[in-house]
């Protein structure tokens, strides 16, 4: 048994499927054990739509709050925003915009990855 560093990658946008919120519930769940695993959440491809300021976060606020308390980073792929015509100022507070090179470094530093 050992503490693990997990990169949770969310690829699907809200709200057509449940993954945008269940992915966050799983991310919080990963940190709930005695070993206090660490998580980072990365929004890739269509998943970046979740970071838009106007997204209704009623069902995700509690998970985001818990992750914030634990110091988990929420990162959004810069290239995916650009491809979708989303301006960086349209991204909500608490999300870090990172180019794929840096997201790859997060992947390198993680023990495990999960995809939603």
């Amino acid at each position: 048994m050992a503490q693990k560093n997990v990169l949770v990658m969310i690829n699907r946008p809200p709200y057509g499927s449940i993954y945008y919120t269940e992915g966050l519930r799983a991310a919080v769940g990963v940190t709930s054990g005695v070993d206090e695993n660490r998580v980072t959440v990365a929004y890739l491809g269509d998943g970046v739509h979740f970071a838009l300021t106007g997204v209704d976060r009623k069902d995700t606020d509690k998970y985001l709050g818990t992750l914030k308390k634990q110091g988990a980073r929420l990162v959004v792929q810069k290239e995916s925003l650009k491809e979708r015509g989303i301006k960086e100022e349209e991204v909500g507070e608490g999300f870090e915009i990172l180019p794929i090179k840096e997201i790859f470094l997060l992947l390198q530093g993680a023990d495990f990855t999960m995809d939603f």
Binding site: M9, G45, D46, G47, E79, I100, L107, D115
Partner: peptide
């Protein structure tokens, strides 16, 4: 190394990351 398990739905996101990977 890194082993990328790729399905179709959003596999492109994974292949983009794999392109960063020597």
């Amino acid at each position: 190394g890194n082993l990328y398990l790729i399905n179709k739905e959003y596999g492109e996101n994974g292949l983009n990351l794999a392109s960063q990977d020597k």
